[in-house]
Amino acid sequence: MSDMTAKKHKRPLWYNLSPLNLPLPGLVSIFHRVSGLLLFLAIPFLIYALQLSLADQAGFDAVRSAMTHPLVRLVTLALVWAISHHFCAGIRYLFLDLHKGIDLPTARATSWLVFAGSAALTLLILVKLW
């Protein structure tokens, strides 16, 4: 601490910690967390939908028709993106755990890959689902 105060910094120091100012791998990280929280909150609704869809024909039809509601479609879009991003970013983290892709250029490239891959997955699933 003493050498810090010795320097002529103007205090207090203000850092821009806005998520939008994060480097690309940092964006992957914060979106991994946000998507994880979203998916957690969705669990009971998804279990309920699964229960309905497996109960009888009426329940199955109810889930199908509910999924065409605009608001439900919006939520579905968010959740499909969340699972796609969480999946892609999670695989990236598993590789990082194995010390693969640690250096900055590779880490940036795989971050782009996560964003592109999750966008493509989201599109693919939604096209098939709707």
């Binding site: 869809s53 199955f60 693919l124 699933i125 098939k128």
Partner: peptide
């Protein structure tokens, strides 16, 4: 998830009977 996505792409869309 990969198994389910594969099944959805190959066999979907599902009817109530096939889903069950």
């Amino acid at each position: 998830l990969v198994v389910m996505l594969g099944l959805l792409l190959l066999q979907g869309p599902f009817s109530f009977e096939s889903w069950r």
